[in-house]
């Protein structure tokens, strides 16, 4: 079966749930798990000159949030007893980041979080996931 499962998270609730499912799956099939926390780059040009100082603060807040979410994850991983490694990368596209990490770590299954869209896109699947499905060389488990 699968030997090495990889699951990306962006620190959101949806990402954390995906990690939990990834852990459960890895345990049930006796596989290793790699968690990739993907942080966005900070783009200074997205901000106007007078708001960039304030913008830096929320960015720091985002990092703090990630550190806290990571602590929680690591406790869950320890409790589950699954062999697990955790990497952090900076990338603007989750799908690209996880695809590269999967290739580098020699993973044979990607677990993708279910980023549910609201509004008029509610019926459609996340574009990042479709891109990953087209580009990936390994099977992808898309959660819901």
């Amino acid at each position: 079966m699968y030997r090495h499962v990889i699951v990306p998270t962006d620190g959101s609730d949806v990402g954390t749930r995906a990690v939990e499912e990834g852990l459960e799956l890895a345990r049930s099939i006796g596989a290793k798990l790699t968690i990739v926390t993907v942080l966005h780059h900070f783009h200074p040009l997205d901000y106007s000159p007078d708001s960039i100082v304030e913008a830096l603060d929320p960015h720091q807040a985002e990092i703090d949030h990630h550190v806290k979410a990571d602590d929680l994850l690591e406790r869950k991983v320890r409790a589950s007893g699954v062999a697990c490694s955790h990497i952090r990368v900076r990338h603007d596209h989750l799908c690209e980041a996880v695809r590269m990490a999967a290739a580098a770590q020699d993973c044979d299954l990607i677990v993708m979080p279910a980023h549910v869209r609201n509004g008029w896109l509610s019926g459609s699947i996340d574009a990042e996931t479709v891109r990953l499905l087209s580009n990936s060389n390994v099977p992808v488990l898309v959660l819901h």
Binding site: G123, I125, V130, S134, S136, P139, L141, V142, H144
Partner: peptide
């Protein structure tokens, strides 16, 4: 456009509320 995922798979992913394992 190179390699692309099957459109039936994309339709299923949009429709279904179950996890889907897409093989290679």
């Amino acid at each position: 456009l190179g390699k692309a995922v099957d459109s039936e798979t994309v339709k299923l992913l949009s429709k279904s509320h179950l996890p889907v394992l897409v093989l290679r």
